[in-house]
Write a protein that binds this DNA or RNA. Structure first.
Length: 669
DNA sequence: GCCAACGTTGGC
DNA sequence: GCCAACGTTGGC
């Protein structure tokens, strides 16, 4: 196991230089860090730009002609001037409140709302729970089962053995319920026997193992009924260590959450009595992270809510069928065609939430409400978007916000240097400008040419066959949608909380190692720097990650404080945990990040390109990153200076840029 | 992948 | 109903 994990670490690190960095705060943070600490002057060509092309902060700082390095430094100081927020057309204030109301600050959960589709409406009304392929949209009817965790449902972890934390008086670690709930410590003979009696258990092999080892009624006591109703409430007693399961269930690296090629050992086959999040019935969790019983798994393959963790979920991999089929992914997708569409692991909106909240949030997805651009009130009147506005005499064809008011973080125009952005006074889109190409976009229902030699006009006059058209369009559509996708990046910031949601959707993962989507499936990332008050006992400023499959307190879960007193580099830390192929395939990696350094105002747009530059060409010479990579690949317990931003980025990177195929490839190498 | 065009929606 | 601008479409 250790060797395997070490190998995984090396594989992770080797992929890092090739990553494509999404538009995100984490990226920028690192760049700033490097720029400041390493005193490496940013290679930025200073050029005079029109006002609306100048960096917005520069304008706010009144720094005409401010050099880029200075500019970055200033931004690092997080001195974004407060500007009176506009309450006009973009309903910032109200919607910001709306957005905040969707945040559960205690749990760091960010509520999201499904789209108003017929399917969703049906599901919300409870009229249909039939679809085994349905996107696991939160069902308000079932929300009581996933209501906020009561203190009783959070199992105080008292690890058996020599854990130092177990000796801390009153130490209580409130890990996400789905992690603690399946703690093997809750398994005792009675519980296991109860599990055998559970009607929800249908996994035969597991049951047989238990039956053979522990006969029902051996101890002559029936389990309490409450154990049936809520197994997680079963008190955990260290005295249970004397039972036959304690030894192998407590030791983390060997924790049997992984299986290889369907080979399940006796030890691995031991189930954990868990409570299904969907139906509430106890069931046998094959591994940590299994929150749904076998029955509900087909209908609700996604957990309903997630803690403010980073959740990398290997979608399209049947957690139950791994190893039992030659093509588990295909089989899974066939069984659950919509399974891979599960993207966001957001908090289940309670029934009180109305559509207005969702609409309000939806309207503000392009606004962080905090950046200078969002706080800007006036249109510049000079950019192309302003010029397009009717009030500026435009034709209102673009219908976009002023360039200067485009959110730095969430605008989809972020980072784009449209042709019309270079200089509004200059002719735009010089390249390949043809008069007949002037009309672009949606309304043009241009038909595809049958004959490539046909003229466009001729084709347009023809009445083509609809089926051919559809085929062609379908092909084109697939060609686009089948490819890689960008990170769908969302950024939410409050005065105290920062939420970064990144969704990666690649239906057709690339095989190349440099492919940032090498996980081969959709991934959902949600980062929150909200501190967990209940993760006391660990460094409040630390960066932690939890890996599913490790059932205990954060320290037992493999959470590693990455900053200050962090003995482990992030990449290595993750790789040293059982998150190899099996975990990424069968379960999901959960990373819990606590108070990760810089506020979002540090993030700059320019740093994205800089980051790419570093990643691609300077990694081998950069004093920070390359050494980390080389070290983390083979060694362990390297005491490194605290670099919060670096840790954060590396954590994301090393967690995301993994793929089992890459693992196999590099294993060969 | 980029982005022009515009349908559409929400606030007023 | 008007305005602002988000989200989608589809050509390139």
């Amino acid at each position: 196991m250790t060797d395997e994990l070490n190998r995984a670490s090396a594989e992770q690190e080797t992929m890092q230089p090739e990553e494509t960095v999404p538009v995100g705060a984490d990226v920028v943070t690192v760049i700033e860090y490097n720029a400041v600490e390493n005193s490496e002057p940013a290679k930025v060509t200073v050029e005079l730009l029109p006002e609306w092309l100048m960096p917005m902060e520069e304008e706010e700082y009144g720094g005409e002609g401010v050099k880029s390095s200075e500019w970055i430094t200033r931004k690092t100081n997080n001195n974004v001037p407060k500007v009176k927020r506009r309450r006009g057309r973009p309903p910032i204030a109200r919607n910001a409140r709306h957005g905040l109301t969707r945040l559960d600050f205690k749990k760091g959960l960010h509520a999201d709302r499904p789209k108003k589709t017929v399917r969703n409406l049906l599901e919300r009304t409870g009229s249909s729970l039939t679809s085994a392929t349905a996107i696991p949209i939160p069902d308000p009817i079932r929300t009581p089962e996933v209501s906020p965790q009561t203190p009783q449902s959070i199992i105080p972890i008292s690890p058996i053995g020599d854990s130092s934390l177990s000796k801390i008086p009153g130490a209580e670690f409130h890990s996400p319920s789905h992690l603690t709930r399946v703690s093997p410590l809750s398994i005792d003979k009675s519980a296991t026997r109860n599990f055998i009696h559970s009607p929800a258990v249908k996994v035969g092999n597991v049951t047989q193992q238990i039956v053979s080892s522990i006969g029902p009624g051996k101890d002559g006591t029936e389990p309490p009924l409450r154990l049936w109703l809520c197994p997680s409430l079963e008190p955990i007693s260290p005295t249970k260590s004397q039972d036959t399961f304690s030894e192998q269930t407590v030791r983390l690296p060997e924790f049997p959450e992984t299986r290889h090629n369907g080979t399940v050992t006796l030890k691995e086959s031991l189930p954990f009595l868990s409570k299904c999040e969907s139906c509430g019935s106890p069931f046998s969790a094959h591994k940590i992270g299994d929150t749904l019983c076998y029955r509900c798994y087909g209908t609700k393959p996604e957990k309903k809510h997630s803690p403010p963790n980073i959740v990398f979920r290997k979608v399209g991999q049947d957690q139950w069928e791994v190893g039992k089929t030659k093509h588990p992914r295909k089989q899974m997708l066939k069984q659950h065609p919509k399974f891979k569409k599960i993207v966001k692991t957001d908090f289940v909106p309670d029934g009180d939430e109305d559509e207005d909240d969702w609409a309000a949030k939806k309207r503000n997805r392009r606004m962080c409400q905090q950046c200078v651009a969002c706080l800007r009130e006036d249109d510049c009147g000079k950019c192309d978007f302003c010029m397009d506005k009717p009030k500026f005499g435009g034709s209102n064809t673009k219908r976009q916000k002023c360039r200067l008011r485009q959110c730095k973080f969430q605008s989809k125009l972020h980072g784009h240097r449209a042709n019309g952005m270079l200089n509004p006074s200059l002719p735009q889109r010089k390249k390949n400008v043809k008069p007949k190409l002037k009309r672009r976009g949606r309304p043009r229902k241009r038909k595809f040419k049958r004959d490539p030699w046909e003229d466009d006009d001729e084709v347009s006059d023809k009445d083509e066959d609809d089926e051919d058209d559809d085929d062609l369009r379908h092909y084109k559509m697939n060609g686009r949608k089948g490819g890689r996708r960008k990170w769908n990046y969302t950024f939410k910031e409050d005065e105290e909380d920062v939420f970064v949601e990144t969704v990666i959707d690649d239906e057709e993962p690339s095989i190349t190692e440099e492919d940032p989507d090498i996980l081969g499936s959709e991934r959902s990332v949600m980062v929150s720097n909200e501190m967990y008050s209940n993760t006391s006992g660990l460094s409040a400023q630390g960066l932690y990650y939890n890996v599913s499959g490790v059932p205990a307190a954060p320290h037992m879960l493999g959470s590693v404080p990455l900053c200050n007193n962090n003995p482990l580099p992030m990449g290595e830390g993750i790789s040293s945990l059982p998150m190899g192929d099996d975990v990424t395939q069968n379960g999901f990696l959960q990373i819990e990040m606590v108070r990760v350094g810089s506020p979002p105002s540090h993030y700059t747009e320019e740093a994205q390109s800089t980051e790419q530059h570093v990643s691609e060409s300077q990694l081998e010479s950069t004093p920070v990153m390359p050494s980390a990579q080389s070290e983390t690949s083979t060694t362990s317990n390297n005491a490194r200076p605290c670099k919060c931003h670096v840790c954060f980025r590396r954590s994301l990177r090393s967690s995301v840029w993994r793929d089992e195929r890459t693992t196999a490839t590099e294993t060969k190498a």
